[in-house]
Computed example of a mutant assay.
Amino acid sequence: MTDAADADSPESDHLRVHYGMSGSVPLRLFEFVFEPAGCYVLDCGGFTPMFDLARGRHTRRAAHVDAVYHDHGLAGLLASADTVTWFAWERVERVVLHNGGRFTRPKLRVVTGAETPSPSVRLHDVDVAALSTALERFEERVRVERSAGAGLL
């Protein structure tokens, strides 16, 4: 799910990408917030397969994070995350959006230099075409690539 703030809002210059999952055990819930100066990557919690995923805790946590954003805006979202990482566009080589192909979920990756890990998540409940269009507004600052397929490599 992507969520651009209302045009009349002071936060209308950002694009939020909601409900990305990454990792193995535990899986991590991530949010991305793209802004004119860079990108926030928010780690919003970890989940184990047996005790959390099987009981839907990840879905409830994603809904809670969404409610925090709608009630308190970007400041509330940043405060509620377990960790927040800021990447200025100068540190980002490109943003890659894979459509997921036939068998996997779409994938979003912020490719940084060799000095820092490049965050990469599988997206849940996202309209890839709408997200691709929304990312166009950042193409003057960072290269945005769109790719068909799973994005395994």
Rank of each mutant, 00 (worst) to 15 (best):
E90K: 08
R137V: 06
H14Q: 12
C44P: 08
L29H: 15
L78K: 11
R143T: 15
D3T: 11
F138G: 14
A150Q: 10
Y19M: 09
P10Y: 00
H58Q: 12
F30D: 12
D127C: 02
E136G: 12
L78T: 08
A63W: 12
L29E: 15
A148C: 10
F138K: 13
Y19E: 15
A148W: 11
G45W: 05
G149R: 00
F32I: 01
Y40Q: 10
P49Y: 06
M1R: 03
R137F: 02
D127Y: 02
E139K: 15
R57E: 15
G73C: 09
N99E: 12
T116F: 13
L78H: 10
F103G: 00
L29V: 15
M50Q: 14
E31R: 03
V126T: 15
S9F: 10
A54G: 15
A62I: 03
D82M: 07
A67Q: 10
L78F: 11
E140N: 06
N99A: 10
L123R: 02
H98P: 00
Y69T: 13
N99R: 11
R146H: 14
R105T: 04
A79I: 04
D82K: 10
L53W: 13
K107M: 08
L123P: 02
V41M: 08
P106F: 00
F51M: 11
V111H: 04
H98D: 01
G20M: 00
D82I: 05
D125G: 06
A54P: 05
L77R: 07
H124C: 13
G23V: 02
P117L: 14
V128S: 03
V92M: 03
V84F: 06
R122P: 02
M21T: 05
V142R: 05
V33F: 04
P26G: 11
R60V: 11
R91K: 13
